[in-house]
Design a protein around this nucleic acid. Sequence first.
DNA 1: ACCCCAACTTGATTTATATCAAGCCTACTT
DNA 2: AAGTAGGCTTGATATAAATCAAGTTGGGGT
Lengths: 196, 196
Amino acid sequence: MMSSFEVFFDYMQKLSGKTLSEDDKQLLMTHFKPKKLRKRQYFLQAGDVCKYIEFIVKGSARTFTVDEKGHENILKLSVENWWLADFESFYLLTPSRFHIEALEDLEVLQSTNAQIEEYLKAIPAFSAMVNVINQNNAIATQKRMQAAINYTAEERYEELMSTYPHFLQRFPQNMVASYLGLSPETLSRIRKNALK
Amino acid sequence: MMSSFEVFFDYMQKLSGKTLSEDDKQLLMTHFKPKKLRKRQYFLQAGDVCKYIEFIVKGSARTFTVDEKGHENILKLSVENWWLADFESFYLLTPSRFHIEALEDLEVLQSTNAQIEEYLKAIPAFSAMVNVINQNNAIATQKRMQAAINYTAEERYEELMSTYPHFLQRFPQNMVASYLGLSPETLSRIRKNALK
DNA sequence: ACCCCAACTTGATTTATATCAAGCCTACTT
DNA sequence: AAGTAGGCTTGATATAAATCAAGTTGGGGT
């Protein structure tokens, strides 16, 4: 069984293609705080400033809004080896419009913006990792953006099935529907049709 | 009248909060190539690999796909001080699914991925600039993503009016409609209603 | 073991938006 | 100056997806 930090170091070295020295690791361990959350616990409430960013070691979470009608809209579903934050609030220190909630028991490593800045300067593997993440992000959001604007419900579903097939096993169908911007009924019908 | 490079240096220093040395400037000028394109000219054709990234000094462009029915879907409208590329193709060197076309006469500074990597290492202001861009990007795409999934046509229009009000003066209405993921007729009707 | 709630399905109806179609205006082209 | 094409509007109709409304199922808590 790997510790949270072992998982994190492993991830960082693989993604960045660089090695972490013992000093690097010590530095990371002094400021990244391991946290555990139970299913249903909230990381962030709408209205609060998102002061922390978390690396997910184990478990999953959702980022969502609640509109005037009490409708929940899921913007993001996050799993292992992803980063968790409302970036708008995190970078600008404005009150968040989002809630972030654990969907499964969650183990994370938590840091602050100021500490991230320090790591960027001090640890080459860290800043290389961030560059790769930003690249991946640019690619992924460009794709999802196009899907959201131009694709039909069915095409968005197919796209999700090919990109993150495990999402549908792992999360309740109504949450996946919300993530796709669909009503639960519509997703149910699409899946029924897709069985052929 | 500022030269392309003056505009670029100015932008980079403002955004990064750092100063460019004369050496930095020389280095940037040796590898960023000034290019001019006339209205309607293509930067990138779907099927080609996007080998270059461009900083827009003057003018505008659109990034779009053409679907089976010959329908054009605009993913991005880009103006001065923005960067232009299909990032998926640019980073992964895969054939692009997009066309990129000048909407107005265009002046850009062009570079390659390999040179960008060099600049990131060699020029502190450059890498600080990229960090700020990535932050802004994360914020903007998070917003636009939520709008695309959760908002009605009218709300998306209002959002655009408050974020980029000049888009509607600058671009033909049918292109703005496509950018919003709407038919030209729907946008026309929304605007009519919004006049009250 | 039972109950109960939450998740999912299925059908009927409504609503938002696309599509089809026609006409109008304005700016180029010749 | 007339002709024409592209962009915009407006109206009628079609369609995708939401909403409303039951009914079914399955798993967790007591």
